[in-house]
């Protein structure tokens, strides 16, 4: 099965850019990606720029409305994702437990929709 690991978090919580704590965490992210990649099960994955860089687009009454920022009211924003091939949910839970931000953010496991 294919799954997405969606990494949510409050940008004000956890290590901040340019701090030694962040350097330490980055090492963990690289190690995680390397471990996952070595299994041949990683289908993709990216980190996202902070929500300050986000734009939202909607079409309402036939008009395109473009706005600054995300429209979600929640404090937790999507910060990155991995796409993983796994046998079952327990395997994904085991990967989620290894995500460096799982101690202060939220990791959501979503199966990928299949259309065949």
């Amino acid at each position: 099965m294919k799954y997405a690991l969606l990494l949510y978090g409050d940008e004000a919580v956890g290590p901040q850019m340019g701090t030694p704590e962040m350097d330490a965490e980055m090492a963990q992210w690289f190690a995680f990606t390397e471990e996952l990649g070595a299994t041949g099960k990683m289908l993709g994955g990216e980190a996202l720029q902070p929500i300050a860089t986000a734009s939202t687009v909607r079409i309402r009454d036939g008009k395109t409305v473009t706005q600054d920022g995300p429209f979600a009211e929640t404090k937790e924003a999507l910060g990155g994702f991995y796409l993983i091939e796994a046998d079952n949910l327990d395997e994904m839970i085991a990967w989620a437990e290894k995500i460096p931000s799982v101690g202060y953010g939220t990791v959501e496991i979503r199966p990928i929709m299949s259309f065949d």
């Binding site: 099965m1 799954y3 796994a86 046998d87 079952n88 949910l89 327990d90 994904m92 496991i109 199966p111």
Partner: peptide, 10 residues
């Protein structure tokens, strides 16, 4: 079914 919950002894 959709989430792939396993039927396995942990």
């Amino acid at each position: 079914r959709a989430a792939g919950i396993p039927f396995a002894i942990p």
